[in-house]
């Protein structure tokens, strides 16, 4: 075997992927060729240094939670799936009926959004589900969101409220920030999103209020069990 033919085989030889007869031929060539032996050693060294690179990366808590949650979704029986289908069909019909009833009273987009965000607030506050980043330092929180959201992340200072941390969320399919604050013994959720949203004024849903404000192209929506005037004031005084 010539050195040129050897070069074709060395890499597979290093990986132990050559058939027996070729392995023997490479072994025999290497015993007598210093140059090919050097190449073989450097290829093996390369394999070794690549193996030292990180091969695992912990995903954000929200991704882990969703993946873990799949096992329960996929585990439903046929009967359960049928019941779920029936339930969703009934729910869809109820939604259509409700939408028709409410069309002339409440702007559906803003009310639906308010309901959705209040529901997110209730199930995501750190008392219920651990935050993905826990820190009172706005720099730490911004750093967590860097590259996780499609905009430059912010961590506004709300006067009289303490930053607790945050987690990733989606609003209208757009990756957004969800920050948590504490004030007056209540936990507040601040949603920050570049999605085009109707943020005007305040809404009430499930015993909570939600108020909005645009800052540049970012929509800020503050949710909590406080009077809407208090939430509006906090938003108006928020320093980005």
């Amino acid at each position: 075997m010539t050195c040129a033919q050897m070069r074709e085989q060395l890499s597979a030889w290093v990986d132990g992927e050559l058939p027996h007869d070729l392995t023997a031929a490479v072994d025999s060539h290497l015993a007598s060729c210093v140059s090919c032996r050097t190449h073989a050693r450097s290829m093996r060294a390369l394999k070794h240094v690549i193996a030292q690179l990180p091969s695992r990366e912990a995903p954000p808590g929200a991704v882990r939670a969703r993946v873990e949650g799949l096992r329960f979704r996929s585990g439903r029986t046929r009967v359960a799936r049928a019941v779920a289908w029936l339930a969703s069909a009934v729910a869809a019909a109820a939604l259509v009926w409700a939408a028709v009833q409410m069309r002339d009273r409440v702007p559906p987009s803003s009310h639906e959004l308010a309901e959705e965000l209040v529901a997110d607030h209730l199930r995501s506050v750190p008392e219920v589900m651990p935050a993905e980043v826990t820190s009172q330092n706005p720099d730490d929180v911004r750093r967590f969101f860097a590259e996780r959201v499609p905009f430059r992340p912010v961590a506004p200072v709300l006067p009289g409220a303490r930053l607790l941390g945050g987690r990733l969320c989606r609003i209208n399919g757009t990756r957004s920030q969800l920050l948590f604050y504490e004030t007056h013994g209540q936990t507040l959720s601040l949603f920050i999103s570049p999605a085009p949203l109707d943020t005007e004024g305040c809404e009430a849903a499930r015993g909570n209020h939600i108020c909005g404000r645009m800052v540049g192209r970012l929509a800020l929506m503050l949710v909590g069990n406080l009077p809407s005037e208090t939430l509006q004031q906090l938003l108006a005084d928020a320093a980005l």
């Binding site: 091969s55 695992r56 990366e57 995903p59 954000p60 991704v63 993946v67 873990e68 590259e147």
Partner: peptide
């Protein structure tokens, strides 16, 4: 499957070169 989540995340990061896209890809 879930025991391979961290490895899949590292692989997804290599494919996408971007943490947000990697998270979406893993899910």
């Amino acid at each position: 499957a879930v025991s391979y989540l961290d490895e899949l995340t590292a692989f997804a990061l290599r494919l996408t070169s971007n943490a947000a896209d990697a998270d979406d890809l893993v899910q």
